[in-house]
């Protein structure tokens, strides 16, 4: 069963898509749906796609709101070819055990997720300064030490090996000109 917070998030996400769809229609009208000769113009696809997005996002919001109301009387459905959704929910419930094999709680894993996203953003910003290889090297160490709580030494060793392999494959073998950043070392 979806948590109430997820349900609200779902409605909010769909609302954003509806807004994007509406904006695309407006933008498309600006580009022109049909040209002077009455042929399909550059605005046609944006209007078509944006319009579809808007319509179905609104339908989805309506369904979600209705679903939230009736959600509580949800009986387990026998599997048949049309009830994929029920099946998937069943499977999800099984995998969404609260504590995983490392004894980590859901809350701890949520914090890990936020940390990884933060590290990724910082890494991309650092590429301009440190260069690609060094920035992503830091990313590997940061995830190992800060997120996965592994020992410094082994984290650094594993990261260096992974990075060396990536550098050899992409930088040397495929000759990809990886950005060197301001430092210009690697």
């Amino acid at each position: 069963m979806e948590s109430p917070r997820l349900q609200v998030a779902g409605i909010a996400f769909t609302a954003v898509l509806a807004a994007v769809g509406a904006a695309a229609v407006v933008g498309g009208l600006g580009y022109g749906a049909v040209d002077d000769a009455g042929l399909v113009g550059p605005g046609f696809m944006p209007i078509f796609a944006g319009g579809l997005m808007l319509i179905f996002a609104l339908i989805d919001i309506m369904q979600r709101v209705r679903h939230t109301v009736v959600a509580n009387r949800d009986a387990k459905l026998a599997l048949d070819t049309s009830s994929f959704e029920a099946l998937e929910h069943e499977l999800e419930d099984e995998t969404k055990l609260d504590v995983d094999i490392f004894g980590r709680s859901q809350r701890f894993r949520n914090r890990q997720l936020v940390a990884v996203i933060g590290i990724l953003v910082v890494t991309l910003l650092l590429v301009n300064v440190l260069g690609f290889i060094l920035a992503f090297g830091l990313m590997l160490v940061a995830i190992a030490v800060l997120v996965e709580r592994r020992a410094w030494l082994s984290s650094v060793i594993v990261s260096v090996v992974a990075l060396a392999a990536a550098y050899l494959i992409f930088g040397v073998f495929l000759r990809v000109p990886l950005p060197q950043g301001l430092l210009g070392i690697l």
């Binding site: 769809g21 696809m45 944006p46 796609a49 944006g50 179905f56």
Partner: peptide
């Protein structure tokens, strides 16, 4: 899953 969601995402892809 939901037909509306599928259509919405297909339209998003087109867009």
């Amino acid at each position: 899953g939901s037909m509306a969601r599928g259509l919405m995402m297909a339209a998003a892809g087109l867009l």
